[in-house]
Nucleic acid binder design. Structure first.
Length: 289
DNA sequence: CGGCCGGATGTT
DNA sequence: AACATCCGGCCG
């Protein structure tokens, strides 16, 4: 009995220590994968490892619940060549995965979570075109505010040298749209960033909607919203702070409201190509070495 | 593959 | 303001 108890305790301890079990190495902060707390989300999920990113795929939404990357300055030193090889995920059965047909004529983009422009490595770039890394995303959002959020994130990586990034959808409300009758359309999209050298993190969040609105929120707030422990190795104190993220050029930062229309508080300066210029500047700087 | 699109940027 | 170019993405 005593043995059983200690076994049980050991198993509980193991559960706590390895709460976010992962088979993907060198992707997650502290090697701890995001941990799904909301058990409604855990149904039919499968972790998929790739060379430079990892995905928690849901057979219910037929999208990722998150895509994780560990980016360093060196990985972004160069230009990513798009493979454009959009493909269904072969490691998933038809019943749990999105197909190219689902997206065709749906009116939605196949929007990357881990973006193509993050992967200069050819294998990784090809891999990121798996539909397991895609959500149905409005084109205006993908080509607009979201592209700026991705750009600002790469800028932050180049500036700080290293970051852990978790990107994913949020499904809110009772009338979630589907495409192909199968793939759920997210209502919001987030990109969480943790910079280990600063021991700080924060997240961008936008509606999957037209317009330039976005918010910056704490990791703690994002975790409440998603039901996912985004960075299990962050301390609670650190999760409640908000890392100063680069403003998103020309777009409108708004006060975050969980379940309503956001309310404008300030405008990011509309300096032409601000982030892009900085990206190139740093790229050229890095090229010299 | 090529043609096309919307969004954004750069040049004139 | 007009034009070219780039980009992520859609379609035939």
């Amino acid at each position: 009995m005593k043995q059983l108890t200690s076994l049980l305790l050991a198993s509980i301890a193991t559960t706590i220590i390895y709460g976010a079990q992962t088979t993907c190495d060198n992707i997650y902060f502290g090697n701890y994968a995001p941990d799904i707390i909301n058990t409604k989300l855990t149904k039919d999920t499968k972790e998929l490892c790739y060379k430079e990113f990892a995905v928690m795929h849901s057979g219910v939404s037929k999208t990722p619940l998150w895509s994780a990357e560990h980016l360093t300055r060196n990985m972004l030193n160069g230009k990513a060549e798009r493979s454009n090889d959009f493909h269904a995920e072969e490691r998933l059965s038809h019943n749990e995965r999105a197909e190219l047909n689902d997206y065709a004529h749906s009116g939605f983009d196949r929007g990357h979570m881990a973006p193509s422009a993050d992967f200069i490595d050819p294998q990784s770039n090809q891999e990121c075109f798996t539909l397991a890394n895609m959500i149905p995303q409005l084109h205006s959002n993908n080509a607009g505010v979201w592209s700026h959020i991705e750009s600002a994130t790469r800028y932050l990586v180049k500036k700080s040298g290293e970051a852990y990034i978790v990107t994913g959808p949020i499904y809110q409300g009772n009338n979630i749209q589907r495409i192909g009758g199968r793939v759920l359309v997210p209502t919001k999209i987030f990109k969480a960033i943790y910079v280990p050298s600063l021991n700080q993190g924060a997240a961008y969040i936008t509606d999957n909607a037209p317009g330039d609105n976005y918010s910056i929120i704490s990791i703690a707030e994002l975790e409440k919203l998603t039901g996912i422990n985004i960075f299990p190795k962050m301390t609670q104190t650190s999760k409640q702070q908000i890392l100063s993220l680069p403003p998103v050029k020309g777009d409108t930062q708004v006060a975050f409201q969980n379940n309503g229309v956001s309310q404008q508080t300030q405008n990011a300066p509309a300096s032409n190509g601000f982030m892009e210029k900085l990206e190139r500047k740093i790229h050229n700087f890095n090229k010299g070495y």
